[in-house]
Design a protein around this nucleic acid. Structure first.
Lengths: 134, 134
DNA sequence: CAGAAGTGCAATCCTGGGGTTGCAGGTTGG
DNA sequence: CCAACCTGCAACCCCAGGATTGCACTTCTG
């Protein structure tokens, strides 16, 4: 049942993890070209064993990037554009947020700010408690 | 020198690989909040050692998601929104392509097509030459 | 009904890469 | 000039996960 992408939460982690693997992207591509496809069918036209394909399909499904339905003795998978779209939206948002900060930083640098003193951080007082930095 | 994202090619593989790691996303987030940051600074406010941070910064840089400039004795990194944007665009394109095919498939199924015979594929002729399917 | 084709599951192998430690080389500031 | 701080390798540990093999079960076809 996918376990993800059921609602509006894209589950970024699963999606990026799924998309990070080349073989998985290959499988996705094949699935994108054909309309519906079984694991065995994909395995037949890629240099990957059926079992490996199944694993990848599972990951892709959990990421909400594909969905499968059982027909007779075989399971047909198809691509789910919404998943990718959601992830794309997330990335665009992030980029926008960064842009905002950078732009702000820039115009703040150009403005004749009076108080420019770097406040020394003052965070190295007693008790480091951080991880060893070497 | 990043080695990537110099031109218009987003280098999907590097970007997704970079984004797939949680720690790397954390580093990115920190870098997104602060305007510019050194590796040591990031290491100081995350549960990661400086060396690990450096590795992640390298990966992010090669993916074109950040850029660094040497100042005095330290190297300051900043986020690069364009990289993310490019990747997002790629994903959106993919999703669109899939949508197109699925839509086409659907209207083709609804249309009263005369010739509906499944053409049997006929691809299992002589000479499999594929990998062992078990 | 028997064989072929497809799926599901479990055990195993093995490489990649995230994380750490250790040390050497540069810069900065008192 | 010396101490503090930051960066830059390099070697090493360790485990997640990608890939394979083997077998049992179900479904379709002749």
């Amino acid at each position: 049942m996918s376990a993800a992408a059921a609602d509006g939460s894209p589950d970024i982690d699963r999606i990026f993890t799924a998309l990070a693997d080349p073989t998985r992207r290959l499988v996705l591509e094949v699935l994108g070209e054909r309309r519906e496809c079984s694991a065995s069918a994909i395995a037949r036209e890629t240099p990957v064993t059926r079992q490996a394909v199944v694993k990848h399909l599972t990951v892709l499904d959990e990421a909400g990037l594909i969905e499968g339905r059982r027909v007779g003795r075989e399971v047909l998978f198809r691509v789910r554009p919404e998943g990718l779209r959601a992830a794309a939206a997330w990335m665009t948002d992030q980029a926008a947020a960064w842009d905002r900060r950078l732009r702000r930083l820039k115009e703040l640098a150009e403005a004749p700010t009076a108080d420019q003193g770097h406040n020394h951080t003052s965070s190295h007082g007693p008790g480091e408690s951080r991880r060893r930095t070497s």
